[in-house]
Amino acid sequence: MSSAVIAETGDSGPVDRAPCILALDLGTTTGWALHGHDGLITNGTVSFRPSRFDGGGMRYLRFTNWLTEIDRMSGPISTIWFEEVRRRAGTDAAHVYGGLMATLTAWAELRGVPYEGVPVGTIKKHATGKGNAAKQAMLEAVRARGFDPADDNEADAIALLLWAIETKGGMA
């Protein structure tokens, strides 16, 4: 049995299940892609934009709750991959990214879920052949693979998930 398949015993005997892999493009609008136990890929975006009545930590509490709900509904999550950004254009974006990354890694550590960041250039090169590909090229590359992302955040998460599956078998 390969390491990418988990055997479970059901009423009718052993059932092979693929690992549940979550890929994230962290930001105020977070792109996500999930390779479920059934082998299907689902994807989307989720907004962690605070309302005017929210305190500073509400964005991160909502992100924690979202992760917990994904794990409960589709998990347990076997591995988490996230886009590792080395440079952000603005201070606010850098703070949001750092807070989301800290929340993600703490959430994963508490549950024993392996996680790993992947440099943006690595994801872009795998998807398009160019490590400095533009957002439109990433959207086109993901669409060519049969997906219909709503925006570049979702496209990046899908591209990251495909990279993880195709180069690492999905496991960190």
Rank of each mutant, 00 (worst) to 15 (best):
A164W: 04
K125S: 12
D71Q: 09
V120Q: 06
S47Y: 01
A102S: 15
L162T: 10
D11C: 03
G10S: 11
E69P: 02
I77K: 08
G129H: 02
G169T: 07
R52A: 13
T64D: 11
C20Y: 00
G31F: 01
K168W: 06
I80A: 04
I158K: 09
E109Q: 15
D151W: 08
T29D: 10
E83Y: 00
N153Y: 08
H37D: 11
D11V: 12
S3R: 13
T91E: 12
W32R: 04
A94V: 07
D151K: 09
W107F: 14
L34W: 08
K124R: 14
V15R: 15
R59W: 03
W81A: 08
A141M: 08
T122F: 00
D152I: 09
K125P: 07
D152W: 03
G98R: 01
D11T: 12
A150I: 13
A141D: 04
V96W: 04
D148K: 14
L161K: 06
A102G: 15
G170E: 03
T91H: 13
T128S: 01
V5H: 09
G36S: 04
A33V: 01
V96D: 05
W81L: 09
W107R: 10
A137I: 00
A18P: 01
D38T: 13
D38H: 02
A155K: 01
R62W: 01
A159M: 09
T30W: 05
L67I: 07
T105K: 09
A18T: 11
I165Q: 11
V46N: 11
N65C: 11
T91A: 13
E8R: 15
A155I: 02
A157Q: 07
S47C: 10
A155C: 08
H37R: 15
W163I: 02
A134H: 10
V96L: 03
